[in-house]
């Protein structure tokens, strides 16, 4: 690890100011950034911790009945505090990593990092959530821009994520055996306006919506409704743990299992 400065502001405004410094980086739970720094693969001049900002922590209900999760809320807190209102989201959060990860890692950190095998992007895209930053609101459909890339501008902070509550929802995750990240994970949400299906871990382009399945499931919300569909292997990730054809299969199987579980 190289030397760096550390700041822990108490307000969003202070954090934004601190992040104005060259090569400063925001620190959520540090579950990706700190290991990268320890391996000398990242060398920020300063870390600006967001976990001391009270308004960014915790789960509440918005005026529009959406579930509002502060950007610096840990996975463990979401698992505990969202369980009553949005059990599918709470279950997803409660199955990220291990207890140490869940008590450090934050939703804002995960979304800003946009690891292509992370769980939260599937929940956010699948729920049609809104990402609220220090200066705007971004629809989930506009937020994820590919591997480790998002619509966030440099220095922009995820203050809150607003989840509309679906009628039914579930997340089905097939774990990569080593990392236990999602080899493929599918979040399915049924709302008054139709069904959304978001897939993480599978595509070379990161989290995506499976439109064909959404249409079929909007007409008939059952596992059988997509039995005849298939996802092309083209563009799926190939690595030690899965071929493109295998991941394409998992997209369908995990979608069916999520529908059955919802």
């Amino acid at each position: 690890m190289y030397e760096f400065d550390f700041e822990k502001p108490a307000t969003v405004a202070e954090a934004v100011a601190a992040l104005g410094r060259e090569d400063a980086m925001a620190l959520g739970g540090g579950q990706t950034l700190i290991p990268s720094m320890k391996q000398r693969l990242a060398a920020p001049s300063a870390l600006v911790s967001l976990t001391g900002i009270a308004e960014m922590r915790g789960v509440c209900t918005g005026d529009d009945a959406a579930l509002c999760v502060g950007g610096a809320t840990t996975h463990a807190a979401v698992a505990a505090e969202a369980a009553g209102r949005y059990p599918a989201l709470a279950a997803l959060a409660g199955n990220i990593g291990d207890p140490a990860v869940r008590n450090r890692g934050t939703i804002g950190g995960s979304l800003a990092n946009n690891d292509p095998a992370a769980d939260y992007p599937a929940a956010v895209l699948g729920s049609g959530a809104t990402i609220v930053t220090n200066n705007r609101s971004i629809a989930a459909d506009d937020f994820f821009e590919g591997l480790f890339t998002t619509a966030l501008e440099p220095g922009e902070i995820i203050v809150e994520v607003r989840f509309p509550i679906p009628e039914r929802a579930a997340y089905a995750k097939f774990q990569q055996p080593a990392s236990r990240f999602a080899l493929t994970g599918v979040f399915v949400a049924k709302t008054a306006n139709g069904v959304r299906v978001a897939v993480t871990g599978a595509s070379e382009s990161g989290v995506f919506r499976w439109g064909e399945a959404e249409a079929a499931l909007s007409a008939d919300f059952s596992a059988d409704a997509i039995a005849g569909l298939s996802v092309p292997a083209d563009g799926m990730v190939s690595d030690l743990h899965g071929t493109p054809a295998y991941r394409a299969n998992l997209v369908k199987v995990m979608t069916q299992r999520a529908v059955s579980a919802a």
Binding site: F174, P177, L183, H241, G242, T243, A245, Y246, N249
Partner: peptide, 11 residues
């Protein structure tokens, strides 16, 4: 006998 190997063999 990882999932991908078993599934691929089954195909």
């Amino acid at each position: 006998v990882s999932p991908v190997r078993v599934w691929s063999a089954m195909q």
